[in-house]
């Protein structure tokens, strides 16, 4: 889409979109939203970028390979936090009972592992959206992506 208006508008709003996405991800435990919503916003911003400029510009910012690696990374972070709780001696995904500091409710750094898990989910969702977009648009032989 070689439209100058779209390009300019994209260039202007993109930082805000991404910032908002990050906000939603990081405040998942305090307000509506969370990993999935925020991740979707971030992913959509990247897709917007790739649509407004072009595919090569988009993949210069975040290549297909990196996004699929991030995809694994997000999921691993989630599972890793779960197993971390086991290593601390409680059940899978244990939080407060595992002795992870909870902090004051209402603060940004509160509710222990939830924030990290939400962050992992956000990374996973954002990168998955991008990967899906790439896979569909490139029509490569990588389209066996799952969730």
């Amino acid at each position: 889409m070689e439209d100058i208006i779209v390009r300019y508008v994209t260039r202007i709003i993109l930082p805000f979109v991404q910032l908002y996405g990050l906000y939603v991800v990081l405040h998942g435990h305090l307000s509506p939203g969370g990993g999935f919503s925020g991740g979707a916003i971030i992913g959509a911003s990247m897709i917007l970028y790739a649509l407004a400029f072009n595919l090569s510009a988009g993949s210069k910012k975040l290549s297909h390979d990196v996004s699929s690696a991030l995809e694994s990374g997000g999921a691993l972070l989630f599972a890793g936090m779960g197993i971390f709780a086991i290593l601390l001696g409680t059940n899978f995904l244990g939080n407060k009972v595992a002795g992870i500091p909870i902090g004051t409710p209402g603060n940004l750094f509160s509710s222990g592992a939830i924030m990290i898990i939400t962050f992992g989910v956000g990374v996973k969702v954002a990168s998955t959206m991008i990967t899906l977009f790439y896979s569909l648009i490139e029509g490569e032989d990588h389209s066996h992506d799952h969730d």
Partner: peptide, 24 residues
């Protein structure tokens, strides 16, 4: 339902990619 949406999205994406293959 948020989870449900995720599932629906992934199914849709997968179905679309299959359609791309079929189109090819």
């Amino acid at each position: 339902i948020l989870t449900g949406i995720v599932v629906a999205v992934s199914v849709t994406a997968y179905a679309l990619s299959l359609i791309v293959k079929l189109y090819k």
